[in-house]
Lab assay of single mutants.
Amino acid sequence: HNLTITQGKLFFHYNPKLCLSEIHKMEEVSGTKGRQERNDIALKTNGDQASCENELLKFSYIRTSFDKILLRWEPYWPPDFRDLLGFMLFYKEAPYQNVTEFDGQDACGSNSWTVVDIDPPLRSNDPKSQNHPGWLMRGLKPWTQYAIFVKTLVTFSDERRTYGAKSDIIYVQTDATNPSVPLDPISVSNSSSQIILKWKPPSDPNGNITHYLVFWERQAEDSELFELDYCLKGLKLPSRTWSPPFESEDSQKHNQSEYEDSAGECCSCPKTDSQILKELEESSFRKTFEDYLHNVVFVPRKTSSGTGAEDPRPSRKRRSLGDVGNVTVAVPTVAAFPNTSSTSVPTSPEEHRPFEKVVNKESLVISGLRHFTGYRIELQACNQDTPEERCSVAAYVSARTMPEAKADDIVGPVTHEIFENNVVHLMWQEPKEPNGLIVLYEVSYRRYGDEELHLCVSRKHFALERGCRLRGLSPGNYSVRIRATSLAGNGSWTEPTYFYVTDYLDVPSNIA
């Protein structure tokens, strides 16, 4: 807008934040220059609390790290170098490059900038070799853009010569660093050979998330399962459950009422301010606690030095998902009996873990797994792929695949051998790939016309006998059925096997 004052003059007093240069501009645009008398524009009460600059400061050096910015700028000295009290560095987070010096300023003089007072450097006698002032900004957020400017702080001049310097606002972004852990990993099994893994992005990506790394490792069953005799009275049979499938998407929606109208769909109840505040506090606490764990609990591995020492970490090797089922080394339970199943799973520490690289999504279907087997899954978020990966501390989750139908069934015939004193040795093959492992066998036998009897055969007993022995049988026709019990439950009964026990007292003698 054009402003013209045809008559009258300007009068400025007691404006401590208004620089004289701005008042002189007002004289020019209003056409009143030359009308004012000496005392109409006070030299001592206008701009006496402001830094009124008329020179431009330029930054000469900028260096960044993930949490620091090192700045240096060209030296500046007023005509009387004693008038320079120091520099004021202003900075704040700036997602967009549209910041002005006066953003967030209120009537009390406060604003949204963080201000650092910096002492002037030592003055050199040689004007050509003056030290460049600077400042190291610490405690910054990774991968965050900051708006920065600097200006001088000078003393009051009796001659009211307006001098000083100020830089333009520059924008500097800190470097990326390792992201925080992925949030809320959930693993479920939808079949006997697959596990579905879902997660949420890290709360602090500290860069642009480029991919996720998912490692999985087959877990050995508890050692007590191999040692305890679950045929003993009072000892509860062990059981394991597989990871249940995901709930429906509708039930997972946030901010939804727990109660549904019987007449149909209901609208979600909005969260109160107290609920939102509580969630923010919980989120802040979780982030602080995660940072504490990362800094205190997890110790970084030592990389190899120039002395030739090897990095103890196993090298990563990509495998196809079809090879995942046989990740671990199978060892027989008892070496003397080769027909026992290889369900003991000690994992070799030198073995390469299978892994998958996930790009542009937060889910993965891990296939080719062994049925009813526990897996430990390790999830890392990465925001750099080359020249070397920059990934987060791992988040861990466990899951067990679903049982395989008929995996616990005894394959092959049940054979028998009759000894003296009416002892019958029953023999059968253990299931080759049971659900988890076989903890015991149930032997059901009966003599024709009598009630059915049951015998429990422990895992250890089966390994020693290759089956079991029935003792003290009365003469007669017998039928026997056997079924295995694994961590997933009972298998199917075998087809009945028949044998006849004679009275050993009636056996004919070869003595003449």
Rank of each mutant, 00 (worst) to 15 (best):
E452G: 09
P338Q: 12
V358P: 06
E362A: 11
K271A: 14
L232D: 15
D250V: 08
A394S: 06
S243C: 05
V439Q: 10
W216P: 06
T343H: 11
D273Y: 06
E430L: 03
P496R: 05
H371A: 09
S509P: 14
N421I: 05
V439G: 08
L293G: 00
V297T: 10
S283D: 15
V414G: 02
K317D: 07
T328F: 09
G234C: 13
N477V: 02
I209T: 13
S474A: 09
R400L: 04
V359S: 10
D506R: 14
P387S: 06
A484P: 13
A484E: 04
L237F: 07
R390C: 12
E227S: 11
C266L: 06
F462Y: 03
V414P: 06
H254P: 09
C231V: 03
F246R: 05
S344R: 14
V507M: 13
Y396W: 06
V457M: 12
L321H: 05
K357E: 14
L321S: 08
T343N: 09
E281S: 08
N477F: 09
C391S: 01
R481D: 00
I209D: 09
F226K: 07
Q380P: 00
V457S: 03
F462Q: 09
F246S: 10
S304N: 15
V324P: 10
T241L: 04
T210H: 13
K287N: 12
N255I: 08
T494S: 11
Q384E: 15
V327S: 12
H454W: 04
T272V: 10
G436F: 10
G489E: 01
H371W: 08
E388T: 08
I482C: 03
S268V: 10
I438F: 02
A395D: 08
G491V: 01
G306N: 07
F355I: 12
N490V: 04
C391Y: 15
D291E: 13
N208C: 09
E282H: 02
Y441V: 06
D311R: 10
T386K: 04
V443Y: 01
L235D: 06
K271C: 14
L440S: 09
P332H: 14
S251H: 15
R286K: 15
E290C: 04
D204Q: 03
P434R: 03
N295A: 10
T347E: 12
W493S: 09
R316I: 08
W493C: 01
F298S: 07
E362T: 10
L453D: 07
F499S: 00
E465D: 04
T307D: 15
W216V: 12
H371R: 13
N326F: 08
P270R: 09
R447C: 06
R390N: 10
L369Y: 01
N339M: 06
D229G: 10
V334T: 11
L225E: 12
S392T: 01
S283N: 05
I377V: 08
T415W: 03
R447L: 13
A484T: 13
L237E: 15
